[in-house]
Design a protein around this nucleic acid. Structure first.
Length: 293
DNA sequence: CCGCGGGCCTGAGAGC
DNA sequence: TGCTCTCAGGCCCGCG
């Protein structure tokens, strides 16, 4: 489900009730998600204060006072939900509003802010893990990640050099978290449309022979930045599972130009094309064959 | 190095 | 109503 804008939306929803608050009680209602919970998972979190809640690519990072970091990933169908109020009210709200969803509420945090925070994940491709802050950068899940697309380090020169010599498609390259970290199927399609580049184009064609950036790389970086920022402003995209932590829908799905719009008219001004769906590396790609070259 | 297929899971929607 | 089939915002592994 969640790509960078959805995870950032979740982070912004959780931060006000988690940062500076203590974990009063942690409940893991099953023994595993994608991986087994680590040994003493709940005990290692209970009593700790959340010093800060960060994000790296599609991962949430909760800095604990113990010196460990709670690393969380939402997989395809993970979502967090916040129930505010003092403990009693939050509990009542939780039981009242969540009856239908409790089956997949796998983790429950009770915070000293009074809020209850639930993690729901029907497909269980998500996970939670505890790692020492000192070795966070060498953690297997984070070590191979490329630059943050909204960070200062990400620019046309960097993207071009990462794509230099790559025979794979642009779609596959942008989906590769080692090249740029945080895009997924939706935002790759959307960024390529904004940049007017075909998803089938060889990745190497956004670099000069010397490995520098050409105009394609410049447009692509701009397309990525703009679409991610716009999506964050809209609270992410809600197709099936994604919700903001207050239960509200994200709104960016209404701004999709190509994703899930097979057969519809290309929204590029003056373009008479129709959105096509193809399959690349096992996943749907949506694009306009007329204006995306 | 590369593309592809399969696997991990559940649920929604389509078609019959 | 119910069955079967396909597909879904991620990611990992092994194959050729």
């Amino acid at each position: 489900m969640p790509e960078l804008p959805e995870v950032e939306t979740v982070r912004r929803g959780l931060a006000p009730v988690m940062e500076g608050a203590r974990f009063v009680q942690v409940e893991a209602r099953r023994k595993d998600l994608r991986f087994p919970f680590p040994k003493d998972f709940t005990k290692r979190i209970e009593g700790q204060t959340c010093i800060g809640l960060g994000r790296r690519a599609k991962y949430l990072l909760c800095d604990l006072s113990s010196g460990e970091v709670l690393l969380m990933h939402l997989g395809m169908s993970g979502s967090f939900h916040v129930f505010r109020g003092d403990g009693e009210q939050a509990t009542a709200r939780y039981h009242h509003e969540r009856a239908r969803h409790m089956k997949h509420d796998h983790v429950v945090f009770r915070m000293s802010s009074g809020a209850i925070v639930t993690f729901n994940d029907p497909r269980r491709f998500g996970f939670m893990k505890l790692v020492p802050r000192t070795t966070l950068d060498s953690e297997a899940h984070l070590r191979m990640l490329g630059p943050e697309p909204l960070g200062n380090a990400f620019d046309a020169a960097m993207l071009a050099s990462a794509c230099r010599g790559k025979k794979t498609s642009l779609k596959a390259a942008l989906s590769d978290q080692r090249i740029v970290a945080g895009l997924g199927n939706i935002y790759v399609c959307e960024a390529l449309h904004r940049a007017k580049l075909s998803p089938r184009r060889r990745a190497s064609t956004i670099a000069t022979r010397a490995g520098g950036a050409n105009d394609h790389a410049v447009r692509l970086v701009e397309g990525i930045r703009v679409v991610l920022n716009d999506a964050i402003k809209a609270g992410g995209s809600s197709l099936r599972d994604h919700r903001q932590t207050d239960g509200e829908l994200g709104m960016f799905q209404h701004n999709f130009r190509v994703y899930d719009r097979e057969g519809k008219m290309c929204p590029t001004p003056g373009c008479k094309g129709t959105v096509k769906r193809i399959v690349q590396t096992g996943r749907s790609t949506f694009f306009c064959p007329v204006c995306q070259k």
